[in-house]
Amino acid sequence: MNIGFIGTGSMGSILIESFIQTGALSPEVIIASNRTSGKIDRLAEQFNGLVKANSNIEVVQLSQVIFLCIKPSEFKNVISEIQPYVKPSHIIISITSPITIAFLEDQLSSKIAKIIPSITNYVMSGPTLCIFGERMLQEDILQIENLMSFISEPIRVSEKFTRISSDISSCGPAFFSLILLKFIRAAVDETGIPYSDANRLACEMLLGTGKLLTTGGFTPGELQKRVSVPGGITAEGLKLLDLKLDGVFNQLIHITHAKFEEDMAKVNG
């Protein structure tokens, strides 16, 4: 079975590279197109056998499953271009959160799914959000989830929670990287510790914390209690953070949802 990719930007490339590196897909079954041919050339040089398509239409004609890894603003043009060539047997997968299943099912005769990946999939970790249209058969769903399980933990979510789920799983790595970076810089500025040392300590700490919260069986609240001693140093730090961060993530969610609604109106309206 051939797997097509329309768009090989940041996330499209991550998916292709991760699928190949895990052995989920061999380069020979991947057909890809992109507006900038140089990006496809780089992938084809890196992965011998990967097929560089001359057009989006060729991707559809040569593939059974097609990932649409494009920006919201590009959807209407791409859908209009490939629409005559899409068959009911195709599985079309959007990785773009503002694009609704209903919009795609209205425009295309194929089976429709929405898979929202995360940059963490690059290291074969983290979740992928899975939303499936009504035309998807159970065997289709299992096929796609099995593919995604090579690089992630597939998690089915309701489409109405697409944005908040994406905030946590896809935007979250960038949000928490910013917090970590500010922690590192403060450590350097206040104490003079070498940046490389502070960076290594902070990143290893975050890795270990993630393991404690997943395979270690801790909840965030339980972890705080285990580390913090009443009246101790950690407890004092937690008091400050609790005060300063109060409401920050509520504001963050308001901002991401407002942008999401704006993008949805442009694409689905």
Rank of each mutant, 00 (worst) to 15 (best):
G208F: 05
K266T: 12
S196D: 15
P154I: 04
T36E: 11
I141C: 00
F5C: 07
I70F: 10
K225H: 14
L240G: 11
R135C: 00
T8V: 15
I144V: 11
I79S: 00
C171V: 05
S152V: 01
S125Y: 09
I144M: 05
S26C: 11
A32K: 02
S158F: 11
P117R: 02
P220M: 10
E222G: 15
E45D: 13
I16F: 01
S18E: 02
I95S: 07
A24C: 10
A24D: 06
L213W: 02
I31T: 09
E45V: 08
I3W: 07
L181W: 11
T256E: 07
A113T: 03
E17C: 06
E45I: 07
I20T: 04
L15A: 01
V59H: 03
K76A: 08
P173K: 06
E139G: 04
S63Y: 09
L178K: 14
L142V: 11
D263E: 15
N250T: 15
T219V: 10
S55Q: 07
G221H: 08
P173A: 05
D246Y: 14
T209S: 08
G231K: 06
D106E: 15
I66C: 08
G4A: 03
D106K: 13
L178T: 13
K244Q: 14
I116V: 14
I155P: 01
I253H: 12
I168L: 15
E236Q: 14
P173I: 06
V60Y: 00
S94M: 03
N121I: 01
K111Y: 03
T96A: 13
L104P: 00
G192V: 11
K259C: 13
I31L: 12
E145I: 05
V86T: 03
A53N: 05
I155L: 08
R35S: 09
T209D: 03
G269D: 11
S228P: 09
G247V: 09
T209A: 08
V248L: 12
T22W: 07
D246G: 08
V188M: 12
N48E: 15
L240Y: 13
S177G: 13
I255R: 14
I70R: 07
I20Y: 05
I99W: 06
S125G: 08
L62R: 15
V60S: 02
P84L: 05
S63D: 03
S109C: 10
G221K: 09
G269C: 10
F260L: 07
I66S: 00
I115W: 00
D189Q: 14
L213N: 07
I112T: 02
